[in-house]
Amino acid sequence: MNEPRIRFENAAKSYGSLTVLDNPETACNEKVMNEPMVRFENVTKRYGALTVLDELNLDIARNEKVCIIGPSGSGKTTVLRMLMTLEQIQGGVIWVDGEPLTHMQKNGHLVPASDRHLRRVRSKIGMVFQHFNLFPHMTALQNCMEAPVSVLGLPKKQAEERAAELLDMVGLSDKRNHFPIQLSGGQKQRVAIARALAMRPKVMLFDEVTSALDPELIGEVLNVIRKLGAEHDLTMLMVTHQMGFAKEFSDRVCFFYGGKIVEQGPPDQLLGNPQNERTRQFLSAVLEAR
């Protein structure tokens, strides 16, 4: 029974010289594979008396692509921000890759996480923001090198190679030495994606990444995300208003309303044949706006 069902022996996976899996001699048994990558367990978020999220329970499997939709104020962005530790939670536990995120285990109890623990678990998560948040005083290349050098301790040369490779992947190899102000919105967002990927996260969060873009620039960003999903083993969690993209890209769509998941399911089912009244109202309002 202790014999693992699946064993990776010296497995390696590369895309060009970008190594995704580097000889992990770890045996992956069924339990680990079945364990969710992210688990929200009774997570509650409050601002003063206002409850934004009420005892949220949500599991996201390894490599699963989940889209979160819902009206503004429904708490959908808060889900991502809590996972990125940009918001404190008032109740419950968030688990990432089998470990509590803002807590740590001590004598069988959960206590608030130390800074070290928080940073270690957080390193598994990357995030792309609606307003890019690129560092304006650094070139595209420097934006992608900063964290690998200072956090992972990568030598400059290696970090530069990695950054160049990622910029190549998002189709911006000719913009390496451009500053954010010299780039279009779509280009900025692609640099932001490359910057997050440079840290080799296991989970990628996309917070309305196309909402601040001109309509004709949305496609180039979505294409990059599509490519990421197809070529990399990444768990992706995405807040979006692009219903068409959600339908084609995701494994599951969650509809948030009033701080709760009102309905969730495969995109065809949820977007094509919603069961809940609120979901129907929301979808018809969104489709009408087109």
Partner: peptide, 8 residues
């Protein structure tokens, strides 16, 4: 927020 997300 970007600094937090990049773990700086």
């Amino acid at each position: 927020e970007a600094c937090t997300a990049l773990n700086l």
